[in-house]
């Protein structure tokens, strides 16, 4: 019983392995297809200014079952006074048809530089947040979201 089935199973396994290998080669390329678009967008907004890591907390799920509704919270460490506050936070996605996701603009009257919304993600990709401080300093954070079912098309 096992005999005649064994070769077919092995062939299937081999085919799967080949597919997986192909996906591994193509996959990251597809995901990075828009990384350039994000870079271009960042260059347009900040003209190549240096960005430091830290102070930005990007809260997104590691795994999003439904790419149509992915919660996102961005919080930036800041005293939020007239002298020292967070001016804006920009969020980008490097695997969506369009790189821009949102821009939040804060004022000292907000008291806390934190806001939440929900976004659509077409596939597994990186989310990049850039915070602009009142003194012009830039801080950034990055997180990967694995998307089970993409939130595009329909």
């Amino acid at each position: 019983m096992a005999g005649p089935h064994a070769p077919r199973t092995r062939r299937a396994v081999l085919r799967l392995a080949a597919l997986a290998a192909a996906a591994a080669v193509i996959g990251p390329d597809l995901a990075r297809a828009d990384a350039k678009a994000v870079e271009a967008e960042l260059k347009k907004l900040f003209d190549g200014k240096t960005m430091a890591e830290g102070r930005v907390k990007l809260d997104v799920p590691q795994i999003a079952e439904n790419g149509l509704v992915v919660p996102i919270t961005v919080e930036v460490e800041s005293p939020m006074t007239e002298q020292d506050y967070v001016k804006a936070v920009h969020v980008f996605a490097d695997g969506n048809p369009l790189p821009g996701v949102l821009s939040f603009k804060f004022s000292p009257a907000a008291g806390r530089a934190s806001a939440s919304t929900r976004m659509r993600l077409a596939q597994t990709q990186n989310i990049i947040a850039v915070a602009e401080m009142s003194n012009g300093a830039l801080f950034t954070a990055k997180a990967e979201v694995k998307v089970t079912i993409g939130g595009c098309g329909g």
Partner: peptide, 22 residues
């Protein structure tokens, strides 16, 4: 002004937005 959000097409349908205010 307290808070402002610029939304791109990547924002989900029936958009939710929360923010802080003092």
């Amino acid at each position: 002004p307290v808070f402002e959000a610029e939304w791109h097409p990547a924002i989900s349908a029936n958009p939710y937005q929360s923010f802080f205010f003092k």
